[in-house]
Amino acid sequence: MKEELFISGRDIPNIDPFLNIWHWEIPVYLYLGGLSAGIMFFAGLFTILDKEKEMETTVKWAPFLVPVALVLGLFALFLDLKHQLFFWRLYTTIRIESPMSWGAWTLMFITPLSMVWAAVYIKELIPGWNWKINIVDQFEEFVKKNMKPLAWAMMGLAIVLGVYTGILLSAFNARPLWNTSILGPLFLVSGLSTGLAAIIWMSKSHFERKVLTKIDIALICVELFLIIHLFMGFLAGSAVSIEAAELFLGGPFTTTFWGGVVILGLIIPAILETLELAGYKVPVWIPSFLVLLGGLLFRFIMVEAGQITRFLY
């Protein structure tokens, strides 16, 4: 028998008996950040490839979701802070070693950028839109002439944002479930996939949907591959890593993770999308909805389960 107890009666809120300091705000933000990164990445990519005409939803309409999602995500982050009046302290310093500092600065650049991108296409979305301010019109002209560099910047920042949502967690060595370098790419791929799902859902063009569906199937395969690698790494790791993996292999998160995230959120949508490509009629919203739901569930599970895992001594 091995037993450990706090005899001083330690029962600190949100820390004992197990850590639960991050609630719904963090997974919601990670989800919205990943989704935004996905949409921005593909909007940038197809602009660079000169496919604005064929991929209209990707380049023009879906990016209108991004500023909304980012602002909501930032608001969730703000709600999570316990010392909210001091949030501006994030922007009085740059801490190279802190992923959260990187993320805060990335968001500082990418949020206005996404707004500029949406503003450029607003005249096409709402015919007769008028800025009524001369300088804004001039700025719009200037941006329109420089869409390519803007697209490159957006694509680059989207990758940083997507990877950051994973690295934010993987930088914590005290939480063995998070402390794996595969989390960065995994969150990026998952974010790109959810972004694509949102675009596919919005798109009315058959050609566009076909192209994006093919990319989405590839991304889902990569994601499954990364998830398998994640668990291979854990099971080949030290005691704390094995313990972390066991939460998902027979532990309390087994059904929700393998059933909800892997089967419902990845495998079934991939099959449905393949069937659709093969010519069967599948309502387009079903695979998209499943991917979006799976992505959200994945982040909730990772944040909650990660906080339970710890070093034992």
């Binding site: 850590l19 909210q84 001091f86 930088a171």
Partner: peptide
């Protein structure tokens, strides 16, 4: 301190609290 909780997550000894 902005109370983001990152340091609480990072401590293997759970020595910090909000």
């Amino acid at each position: 301190c902005i109370g983001c909780g990152a340091c609480i997550q990072s401590c293997p000894y759970d020595a910090r609290y909000s």
